[in-house]
Computed example of a mutant assay.
Amino acid sequence: MSAGRSGKRVADIEPSRLALLNTGAVEAATLTECLAVDFATLMQVVLPEIGEDAVGAMREAAREGISRRMALAARLIHERRGMADLAKLRCHASDTVRGWACFMVGVAKDHTLAERLALIRPQADDLHFGVREWSWMAVRPYIAVDPEDAIARLAGWTAEPSERLRRFASEATRPRGVWCAHIGLLRQSPEKALPILEPLQADPAPYVQDSVGNWLNDAGKDRPEWVRSLCARWSAESPMPATARIYKRALRSIDRKD
């Protein structure tokens, strides 16, 4: 999960601020604050009916990585409450709780990819950086299973007014990605993602540009000549700063090898 840099350590967070985070009264402002949240305490406050066994399981997992704890929280909630709390959690003041809602979409049974994408859409467009990262991570396993279906469905998101939704289409389909399984089909045949990439070649938002550049940087580790050719064509078709920024980011790993 990416976020703005912070020089703080967890121990540097004021106790009063940490108490607000742990009771779900405020959003985390930095990655450090995201990592500092006590999931067991937060779960007990937000879902007092969840049961002590769930809270205890969350407490036992306190030393696990945050991605595992997010997924565990969602499983515990889903096992005991189904999807009944999804609407409540997805609009909660706490970004961590809204992250649990993301992973509930991931753990829910008997949903098609189309249904999962529809359910994750509010979190993909969330104002908080962390929730947006959890949104694509939560559905990434299903995208990896059927990337061609995902590309066909997400291609339409590239025309959305929200840069956050446009970025989701790119970030969720990266061939290698971060903290997620690779998508073998797109490593071998990145051209299959052109329905998503082409509309974003000169996107005005740096947030989207960086994601597209990272997508192509991933692809360049397996298909460098394809990436070079695509970037050259885009530069000719769209000779503007947005495309140049994507081009530079896309070729950074390839250029280091040369």
Score class of each variant (00 low, 15 high):
residue 194 L to Q: 06
residue 130 G to F: 05
residue 222 D to Y: 07
residue 103 F to W: 10
residue 156 G to V: 12
residue 98 R to F: 04
residue 205 A to S: 14
residue 201 Q to W: 08
residue 56 G to T: 14
residue 138 A to V: 11
residue 136 W to F: 07
residue 15 P to A: 08
residue 255 D to C: 07
residue 203 D to P: 04
residue 167 R to T: 00
residue 87 A to E: 15
residue 161 P to E: 09
residue 142 Y to W: 11
residue 52 E to D: 13
residue 115 E to L: 11
residue 64 E to F: 10
residue 81 R to T: 01
residue 192 K to C: 09
residue 247 Y to T: 01
residue 62 A to V: 03
residue 86 L to N: 08
residue 256 R to S: 08
residue 164 R to T: 05
residue 3 A to Y: 11
residue 212 V to D: 07
residue 228 R to L: 11
residue 107 V to Y: 00
residue 229 S to G: 13
residue 242 A to C: 09
residue 49 E to K: 12
residue 61 A to M: 06
residue 135 S to D: 08
residue 207 Y to G: 03
residue 242 A to K: 04
residue 3 A to M: 10
residue 110 D to C: 07
residue 250 A to L: 03
residue 236 A to K: 10
residue 24 G to M: 03
residue 35 L to K: 14
residue 48 P to S: 03
residue 120 I to G: 07
residue 222 D to F: 05
residue 4 G to S: 14
residue 167 R to I: 00
residue 57 A to Y: 01
residue 177 G to R: 02
residue 163 E to P: 03
residue 73 A to W: 02
residue 164 R to G: 05
residue 167 R to L: 01
residue 65 G to H: 15
residue 79 E to N: 15
residue 10 V to I: 15
residue 221 K to V: 00
residue 64 E to R: 14
residue 120 I to N: 04
residue 180 C to N: 01
residue 27 E to G: 05
residue 10 V to F: 10
residue 256 R to C: 01
residue 107 V to K: 07
residue 37 V to Q: 09
residue 55 V to L: 11
residue 110 D to Y: 08
residue 65 G to E: 14
residue 79 E to A: 15
residue 108 A to P: 05
residue 177 G to F: 06
residue 54 A to L: 06
residue 184 G to P: 03
residue 144 A to M: 01
residue 27 E to I: 05
residue 136 W to K: 12
residue 32 T to Y: 04
residue 252 R to M: 07
residue 215 W to A: 07
residue 66 I to F: 05
residue 212 V to M: 10
residue 10 V to M: 11
residue 122 P to D: 04
residue 165 L to S: 02
residue 93 A to Y: 13
residue 52 E to K: 15
residue 82 G to D: 00
residue 32 T to I: 02
residue 144 A to C: 03
residue 227 V to N: 03
residue 181 A to Y: 00
residue 33 E to P: 09
residue 66 I to G: 01
residue 232 A to L: 12
residue 100 W to L: 01
residue 177 G to S: 13
